[in-house]
Amino acid sequence: MIPAETSENVLQNSHIINHQNVMISLKNIEKVYRTDTVETLALNNISLNINKGEFLSIMGPSGCGKSTLLNIMGLLDAPTRGEVSIDKHDTTQLNDKKLAAFRNRKLGFIFQSYHLINDLQVLDNVELPLLYRNSSAKERRQLSIEALEKVGLSNRMKHFPTQLSGGQKQRVAIARAIVGQPEIILADEPTGNLDSAMGSEIMDILLQLNERDGTTIVMVTHDENMARKTHRLVRLFDGTQVQ
């Protein structure tokens, strides 16, 4: 425990230096899940700063709290204790409407199981984040086509998700995550359901996004090789940060 805490402090200190550039700041995050009988401490006092333009990967055994951490960063879930700031905005006090607007502007999500809407065509799926902004139909269409071009799927716009392979679905999901040009992309095991060839394709797209557009990316992964390609690796064990 003691070495973990020290290394965390060291990390934190190193980031305080360029405080200007902090994009996501977690302070003493604790998450407790309560069911009728059991209390699970999913996250135990996690503090973490992620810089603008950083590509961070999170690793750890199954059930150690990686998704929980990512969801809290993405404002999809509220911590039991602690503070989440995004781009220097404290998000603790935001109401449902403000949170929604915040997610819409700042964040893009990529999930392991894609979470595309099967009733909508690829293009409509990609457009989704833009629906919750004031943008015209024409503009939405334009941006969505551009996003699909970036992931190399502009020839599948009129398909339905069920007509695509896993890798294609994930690329649609990436297009959806980037269409609104968010500053942060949160990816929870984006290659978890894909074979290694498709997985590295996805990884390449993410790396390119990070390098070319300067998008801050936090990615949960089980793949050491992929983690090695990112700027920094955080390891979790039983809800505690160990590296």
Binding site: D96, K97, A100, R103, N104, H115, I117, P129, Y132, G180
Partner: peptide, 16 residues
């Protein structure tokens, strides 16, 4: 519910 989750994640508020 998956659709609802996705919409919320990408910026739909409860009222929307």
């Amino acid at each position: 519910s998956s659709e609802i989750g996705v919409r919320k994640a990408f910026g739909a508020s409860g009222m929307t």
